[in-house]
Amino acid sequence: MMQEIAWQLSLVLMTLVALGFGFVAINSGVRVEDYTPLQKRAYRIRSKLFWTLVAVLGPAMIYTLLDLPYGTSRAGHKAGPAQVVEATGHQWRWELSRDRVVRDQPVEFRVTSADINHGFGIYDADMHLVAQTQAMPGYTNTLRHTFTADGTYRILCMEYCGIAHHNMMSEIKVGSL
């Protein structure tokens, strides 16, 4: 799950930063008066750090661009014609053209808004966010997603839209029609 990866990666990287600061804090007490040799060594380490970052972050940056949720790239290769759901956000409800879709077959959500900005977030039965896009007046964002498990999914608003923002929920059932 993407969220789990993001969390663990963040913890690892934040811990590495903390270790760096902790190491220096512990080794700050005894002074080396001649700063120049220390500086030269530190610059050499910095070069290595820089190239390590380039070597790690560069491929990660490119690799994560390979599966973008835009256009036809996501779920486009799945079998079968797309099931189209027209989704319109209103203050404070969702209007869906259908509330049942079939599993393992692409769903194309055409998301827009009738009034102000909303966010169309799809949550699975365990209340984990599986996909989202913004709902904006005057624009239609096309979100393609293929559900791989049956169940009742919830639609939550992901962009603050006023007093009942937190109540702007709907449901979509995934299973046999």
């Binding site: 993407m2 993001a6 963040s10 934040m14 930063v17 903390a18 661009l65 966010g119 996909a131 992901m158």
Partner: peptide, 21 residues
């Protein structure tokens, strides 16, 4: 520096897809 870590991860499009807002 520590805050920049979850920030750049959030700026990754495929992560943002399930973590934005």
């Amino acid at each position: 520096a520590a805050g920049a870590m979850p920030a750049f991860i959030d700026g990754t499009i495929t992560v943002n897809y399930v973590m934005h807002n």
